[in-house]
Amino acid sequence: MGDQNGLQEGISLYKGRKYADALTCFLALPSDASADPVEVAYYVGLCYAKLERYDDALLYLEQVVTAEDGSDDETAGKRVLQCRYLLAVIYCTTGRKKLADFELNKLLDLGYKTASVYASLAFIAWDDGDVDKCIDFYNKALAVDENNPTALNGLGYVLANEERDLAKAVGYCQRALSFAPDSAACLDSMGWVYYKMGLYSEARKYLEKAHRKDDANELIASHLQEALQAGEE
């Protein structure tokens, strides 16, 4: 009973976004605890991911996938899908694109065809320089969820950057920004579309906002510098 109470306390802390405290609680459970070890590993992996301790997160999330992959239990099945997607996100974040691509395509094979999965595949395709494949994945994401801000922003940015359809690009970016008005990425894309349209004053306005929200982002800084230089010419 004590082990179960400890598990529930950790889950409560996790849901309250107290990830470090939750992690301490989960790790304090004895190895011979009555609590389900896979469930404990699941929450430990989630905590490490939230704390951006990615290598530790991978270790526990992979344990969950290995233990429960192919299970007929509905809860276990959902947990595997979530862990696979989180693994893909971590692999993308840490530059392991092939592993991310494997996990994302595995999710598609399992029928988990969400806008987030397609948008993540679009990002990988863009990073690989395959623009057509990237656009196709973003369109698939929007076919699943027409209001997905990540897909709207991504597609708008790609269309603008490649100067394929600036009218559509500005529409996608405006919609993305309406859902995520404080997103540095969305502000940057909006500014970049205006830059590509030659509207440098508008471009600077959005790019300056993006830079204030994420002044460590090199791409945003580069876009802002180009817009400032263009306005001086």
Rank of each mutant, 00 (worst) to 15 (best):
T75K: 12
G95N: 10
L219D: 14
T75C: 05
A143R: 09
K98L: 13
Y48S: 08
P181I: 06
Y54G: 03
I11L: 10
A167F: 09
D36R: 05
C173K: 04
S178C: 09
Y172T: 05
T24I: 07
V80R: 00
V193F: 09
D214L: 06
R164I: 15
V38A: 14
Q63W: 04
L228T: 13
A88S: 09
A100S: 05
N161L: 06
V65A: 05
C47Q: 07
L187A: 07
L219G: 02
D69C: 01
P181G: 09
A216S: 13
L159P: 07
A160Q: 02
A33Y: 04
A119S: 15
A227T: 14
V144L: 05
W192Y: 07
K97P: 03
V158E: 01
D182C: 06
E202L: 08
Y54W: 11
L155N: 04
D72V: 15
K209R: 15
E9G: 09
A57L: 07
L166W: 04
D214H: 06
G70S: 05
E74R: 10
A28N: 11
W126E: 15
A76E: 13
W192G: 03
I11V: 15
R175F: 02
C47H: 10
Y85T: 08
C83M: 10
E74H: 05
V144N: 04
L228V: 15
N217P: 03
E232H: 08
Q63V: 10
S178K: 08
C47R: 06
D145G: 04
K113Y: 00
S183N: 11
V89H: 02
T94F: 00
E103C: 01
C92D: 14
A203F: 02
L59N: 08
K205G: 01
G10H: 08
I220F: 04
S34T: 15
A210I: 13
R53L: 12
L107D: 00
I11F: 07
H211T: 13
K140L: 08
D69L: 04
A167G: 02
V89D: 11
Y14N: 02
D3E: 11
I11A: 07
A100H: 00
R175T: 14
N217G: 05
Y118D: 02
D56C: 09
P30T: 14
S71K: 08
G6W: 01
D55K: 12
K15L: 10
E146L: 06
A216Y: 12
D109T: 13
T150Q: 11
A33I: 10
V117H: 05
G191Q: 06
L121A: 02
A49Q: 12
S31Y: 03
D165S: 14
L61C: 13
A160C: 11
D182P: 04
K133P: 01
